[in-house]
Design a binder for these strands. Structure first.
Lengths: 256, 256
DNA sequence: CATCTCAATTAACATAGATTAGGCTCGCCA
DNA sequence: TGGCGAGCCTAATCTATGTTAATTGAGATG
C-alpha cells in the first residue's frame, strides 16, 4: 500500500461504456439529492478520466492535499491508518459511486490513506470544473455535501460498533451496511447476494477484531443461517434476522 | 437527556460580554482559516441569541432537522446514541467555538443527539443570515467546511482508538485531543490545566470502557506521573510522555 | 446534624476476545 | 509435477477488560 497506484490511464473513457461505470456516480448522487436531467447530464461529463488501481495499492496517500476529486467507479476501497508496527485500522469504506475523500470540499489535505481492497476503477474530477458546474447547479454541491454527511454518519456508526457492540453484532452490522449501501447503487444481485472483496484478516482490521475471532464469528452467523460467505461472495439468507441481530437502523444512510 | 433543553433565552447577549463567549467562535474559525477583520466582524454578528443548556440535557435531539446552526460558546457537549436498554455510546465532542452539528451544511437531519455534559451556553445562527453572509464572504463558509473536516477526522481518530488502542492509550489519546483542542481556543490555563466536565462513567461511555476500568486506567496514568485529575480539573504533568504513550499526532486537528 | 445521593475507589471473580500454533485447500508458478 | 504462499479453519491457552458488589467521601438537603 506504499507504492504509487499502478494505473492504466484511460482519458475520456466514456465511449467504451456509457451506461456503465460513470452511471453509478450519477445514481449515487441522485439518491442523495434528486437531480434534474440536465444536472445529471452535467455530472456525467465531470468525470474526465478514469484509471484502475490494483488491490492493496493506495488511491490517496496520507496527508496528501487534493488537487482533484476522486470518485470510485468500481470495486471497494477503505480509509485506513497505519499504527505502530504492523497494526492497521480501517476507518471507513468507499463503495462505487462514492467520493474517495471529502478533502476537496474544504481544500484541506487528506488526513488518512485510501486504499483499494479489490481491483478498482477510479474516476477523476477536476476541481475547477466541479466548482464551475457547482456554481450553476447548486443541487450538485448539495448532493456532494450530503454524501459527506452520510460519510460522517457512517464513521460515527463505526464508533458505535467498536465501542459498544460485540463481535457478532459488529459483523452483522457491517454486513447490513454494505448490503444497504450497495443496494442503493444497484450492486446487490438476485437472492440478496453481493461481492465483498475482503479477506477475513481485512475484516478484522475494519472491525477491530483478530482474524481468528472473525472466523469464529462468521461460523456463528452461518450456523444461525443468517448468511453465506465464501470467496468474496456474501448472501443474505435472513435479512430481518440479521438486522435484528445487529439492531440495524438504515436511516443514517439516508440524509433527510 | 430526553427532556427539552432547559434554557434561559438571552436574545442579543452581546452587550453583556463582548470580548467573551462569542469571541471563542471567531477565534475557532480563524484558526481553521485565517479571516480578514471585516469577516471576523461579520461572524460575530451572526450569533443572534444564546441560551444555557443544563448538564445532561439535549442540545439537539436525534433525527431533528436543523432550522438553524448551533454553536457551543461555553462548556462541553457530546454526540451520542442510545443503544438497546441502558447502553449509550458517545461518538464525538463539542468544545467551545465548535458547531454542535454540521447538518446545516447539507440541509440534512441530525442523525444523533447532542447532549450537554457540563453547564453549557449555546449560540444560535440563523441559516438565512449565514448563507447571506457566506455568499459575500466565502472564506467563512470555507472555514465552516474545514470545521466539518476536522470533525470528521476526530471521528475517524476515535474509530482508531476504539478499534486498535488499549485502555491506557485510549485515555491518554483522548486527553491529548482535549488538551490540543482546548488550547486552540485559549481554554488551557497555566500549568497545562483544563476543565473537563465528565464523570468517570461518562469517560467510559466515550471510550468504550467500563467505569471500573476507566478508574484503574486513571490510577495508572497518575502513577506514571503523567496527569492529575480530580473533580473535573485535569493537569498535564508530562505532555511529551503522555503524547508518546498515546502515539498522538495532532496534525489531524489542523486542516491544511 | 442526620441523611441521601452521587462519584470515586477497591477487590474478587468472570469472560470475550487475543495470541500462538498448527493443519488444510487451492491456485499459481517454476 | 511439485512446491509455495495465501487464505481459511480449529484448538489450547492467556489476558485485558467486564461485572458485581461493597466502602468511602463530599456535597446537597431537610
Amino acid at each position: 500500500m506504499n507504492s504509487p497506484p499502478v494505473s492504466e490511464l484511460t482519458a475520456n473513457a466514456h465511449a467504451r461504456r456509457d451506461q456503465g461505470e460513470h452511471d453509478v456516480f450519477v445514481r449515487r448522487l441522485n439518491a442523495l439529492y434528486p437531480l434534474q436531467p440536465h444536472e445529471s447530464k452535467a455530472l456525467e461529463t465531470l468525470v474526465d478520466a478514469s484509471y484502475a488501481v490494483l488491490p492493496h495499492h493506495d488511491i490517496l496517500h496520507e496527508q496528501q492535499p487534493s488537487k482533484e476529486a476522486l470518485v470510485l467507479l468500481e470495486g471497494l476501497a477503505c480509509h485506513y491508518k497505519v499504527l505502530d508496527s504492523a497494526r492497521r485500522q480501517m476507518t471507513g469504506f468507499v463503495l462505487p459511486g462514492d467520493f474517495c475523500d471529502f478533502g476537496f470540499l474544504s481544500s484541506s489535505a487528506t488526513r488518512q490513506g485510501v486504499m483499494a481492497l479489490g481491483p478498482t476503477l477510479v474516476g477523476r474530477i477536476d476541481l475547477r470544473q466541479l466548482s464551475a458546474v457547482g456554481d450553476k447547479m447548486p443541487n450538485i454541491l448539495l448532493a456532494a455535501m450530503r454524501a459527506a454527511s452520510v460519510d460522517q454518519a457512517c464513521a460515527r456508526e463505526l464508533v458505535i460498533s467498536l465501542g459498544a457492540r460485540d463481535a457478532l453484532q459488529r459483523l452483522a452490522h457491517f454486513l447490513c451496511e454494505m448490503y444497504h449501501r450497495l443496494r442503493i447503487v444497484g450492486l446487490v444481485g438476485a437472492g440478496a447476494q453481493f461481492e465483498l472483496a475482503m479477506t477475513q484478516a481485512e475484516l478484522g482490521e475494519a472491525l477491530g477484531l483478530s482474524t481468528v475471532h472473525i472466523n469464529r464469528t462468521i461460523q456463528q452467523l452461518r450456523k444461525q443461517k443468517l448468511i453465506t460467505m465464501s470467496q468474496g461472495l456474501v448472501t443474505i439468507l435472513d435479512a430481518a434476522g440479521r438486522e435484528a441481530a445487529a439492531s440495524f437502523d438504515p436511516r443514517y444512510l439516508r440524509p433527510n
